[in-house]
């Protein structure tokens, strides 16, 4: 029953969001694109990093790969194939990174992903300067903001469905065991490296697609714009605030924080990253497992004290 109810709710929400471009003005659509982008990024990030506890700092590496692929091939490849190409390149990079680092302790993975965006940025810059001789590209694609909005909404919905499906499948169960104790998981016959690699690949492809879909918004792209480390940072904060272990956690983190960041970058453009860092530290200290888990714990504790107090009242 609750399953039918929640899927009905899901469809109603997606349908309602799909109607937004008909009523909102252009600023509203822009805001919607940014918000949907970050909701998708945070959910895709949590898809891999939530259950495995491998903190990936490489979000922008894949995001940038997607955006840059669109910029490079926008004149030679038709649009739908462009997204496929971007996804394929993202998948290839994810497999190389995953195969070489996911077998090792988590901290190596974190360090590698920490520098991955910088590495990709420098390689792209080097290639552009030495081989093609131009730094910076223009994107002229016949894609309207509404079109981008709907594509992102579709991607967000698919990401949610994948995340929901994984939570209920064999691979999801395997992931939960890996997250709790890798040694136990290995003894249960779970192929740890393969499960992690599959998840990392799915998550990275989604992130690459977000970059590819959003790319036409920029018109002009160069490596410093496409590989802006703030994107990795924001995604991480949002997923952590909401709680990376739950389906709706990243969503609950992304929406309020995106609005807050919009407001901050409009009002305090110079002190933006200081405030960002302080918020992040506060989240790590106060809500280490996310706002949802925090609320649930306190709700349960509050209920418990209620129940404890009841007999005392009766006496």
């Amino acid at each position: 029953m609750s399953r039918i109810l929640s899927s009905a709710l899901f469809i109603v929400i997606v349908a309602a969001l799909a109607c937004v471009p008909f009523v909102a003005d252009s600023y509203g659509v822009t805001l919607g694109i940014g918000m949907l982008g970050y909701v998708t990024l945070a959910t895709a990030w949590a898809l891999f990093s939530g259950p495995t506890r491998y903190v990936s700092l490489a979000t922008v590496a894949f995001f940038g790969i997607g955006a840059y692929t669109v910029a490079v091939f926008s004149e030679t490849i038709p649009y739908p194939l462009l997204l496929v190409t971007a996804g394929a390149i993202g998948l290839a990079v994810a497999l190389v990174v995953g195969l070489s680092t996911l077998r090792l302790a988590g901290v190596y993975f974190v360090i590698f992903t920490f520098g991955l965006a910088e590495l990709v940025r420098q390689l792209v810059t080097w290639y552009e300067v030495n081989v093609t001789g131009t730094l910076g590209r223009y994107i002229f694609l016949p894609v309207t903001p509404e079109g981008i909005y709907w594509q992102l909404l579709g991607l967000a919905a698919i990401t949610f469905l994948i995340s929901w499906w994984i939570g209920r499948s064999r691979i999801g169960l395997a992931l939960k065991v890996i997250g709790d104790d890798e040694i136990v998981a290995a003894h249960c016959g779970i192929d740890i490296a393969r499960v992690k690699l599959a998840l990392f690949a799915i998550s990275s492809v989604i992130i690459t697609l977000v970059g590819a879909i959003q790319a036409p918004r920029w018109t002009y792209v160069e490596p410093t714009i496409a590989f802006n480390p703030t994107i990795s940072f924001l995604t991480l904060i949002m997923a952590l605030l909401g709680g990376a272990h739950r389906l709706t956690g990243p969503l609950l983190g992304a929406v309020p924080l995106f609005l807050l960041f919009e407001w901050l970058s409009a009002n305090f453009p110079n002190h933006y990253s200081i405030i960002l860092g302080l918020i992040f530290i506060a989240i790590v200290f106060i809500l280490p497992r996310g706002v949802l888990a925090f609320a649930e714990e306190n709700w349960r504790r509050w209920r418990k004290t209620e129940i404890k107090n009841l007999p005392a009242v009766a006496e």
């Binding site: 506890r53 903190v55 700092l57 988590g106 901290v107 974190v110 940072f233 991480l236 952590l240 002190h271 933006y272 990253s273 200081i274 405030i275 960002l276 860092g277 302080l278 918020i279 992040f280 530290i281 790590v284 200290f285 280490p288």
Partner: peptide, 18 residues
């Protein structure tokens, strides 16, 4: 390790911002 990575990641942005 994970907690310290996250906390110092925040610190990175604070110092860099300053």
């Amino acid at each position: 390790e994970i907690d310290s990575i996250l906390a110092t990641f925040g610190l990175l942005f604070v110092i860099q911002g300053i």
